Simulated assay, not measured.
Amino acid sequence: MSDTLKLSQARKGARGVIVRVGDHRHHGQEHAAELERRLLELGFVEGARIELLHEGLFGRDPIALKVDDMRVALRRHEAASLTVRLDTAAI
């Protein structure tokens, strides 16, 4: 799907829906499993609406996101574990 991308690739103002949590290419990695668990606990679940609100000054890191009705900051390497479908009106 051309309208899906890793959240780490999104730019400020992007809006969409989470379609996958975790990087399923790296089975068995303890760190990846722990990150996926933490993201789920923070509300990064499939179907959650997201909006990228802010990017840090240095290397665009960290990013501030609105996830449903909550605001969360993530580093881009953490955001790479989330796949989103962007709203076409926001592209």
Results as ranks from 00 to 15, higher is better:
residue 1 M to C: 14
residue 4 T to P: 12
residue 4 T to L: 11
residue 4 T to A: 14
residue 5 L to G: 05
residue 6 K to W: 04
residue 6 K to F: 06
residue 7 L to W: 01
residue 8 S to K: 03
residue 10 A to S: 12
residue 11 R to W: 02
residue 11 R to P: 00
residue 12 K to R: 12
residue 13 G to V: 06
residue 13 G to A: 07
residue 13 G to F: 03
residue 13 G to L: 00
residue 17 V to R: 09
residue 18 I to D: 02
residue 19 V to N: 07
residue 23 D to C: 01
residue 24 H to T: 01
residue 25 R to Q: 05
residue 25 R to W: 03
residue 25 R to D: 05
residue 25 R to P: 01
residue 27 H to D: 11
residue 27 H to G: 13
residue 28 G to T: 06
residue 28 G to A: 03
residue 29 Q to W: 00
residue 31 H to V: 13
residue 31 H to D: 14
residue 32 A to I: 03
residue 32 A to G: 07
residue 32 A to W: 04
residue 33 A to L: 05
residue 33 A to F: 05
residue 34 E to P: 03
residue 35 L to K: 08
residue 36 E to V: 07
residue 36 E to F: 04
residue 36 E to S: 11
residue 36 E to D: 11
residue 37 R to T: 11
residue 37 R to L: 13
residue 37 R to I: 04
residue 42 L to Y: 07
residue 42 L to D: 14
residue 42 L to V: 05
residue 43 G to I: 05
residue 44 F to N: 10
residue 45 V to I: 12
residue 45 V to S: 15
residue 46 E to Y: 10
residue 46 E to H: 02
residue 47 G to Y: 08
residue 47 G to Q: 06
residue 50 I to D: 10
residue 50 I to G: 12
residue 52 L to C: 09
residue 53 L to E: 04
residue 54 H to V: 06
residue 54 H to D: 15
residue 54 H to M: 10
residue 55 E to R: 10
residue 55 E to T: 12
residue 56 G to N: 01
residue 56 G to Y: 02
residue 57 L to M: 10
residue 61 D to G: 03
residue 61 D to M: 06
residue 63 I to C: 14
residue 63 I to R: 07
residue 65 L to D: 00
residue 68 D to R: 04
residue 69 D to T: 02
residue 71 R to T: 10
residue 72 V to Q: 12
residue 73 A to I: 01
residue 73 A to W: 13
residue 73 A to L: 09
residue 76 R to A: 07
residue 76 R to E: 02
residue 77 H to N: 11
residue 77 H to F: 12
residue 77 H to L: 07
residue 77 H to G: 02
residue 78 E to M: 11
residue 79 A to K: 02
residue 80 A to C: 02
residue 80 A to G: 00
residue 81 S to N: 12
residue 82 L to Y: 05
residue 82 L to C: 09
residue 83 T to F: 11
residue 83 T to R: 10
residue 84 V to A: 13
residue 85 R to A: 14
residue 86 L to M: 10
residue 86 L to I: 10
residue 87 D to C: 07
residue 88 T to K: 14
residue 88 T to L: 15
residue 88 T to S: 15
residue 89 A to E: 10
residue 89 A to N: 09
residue 89 A to G: 08
residue 90 A to N: 02
residue 90 A to R: 02
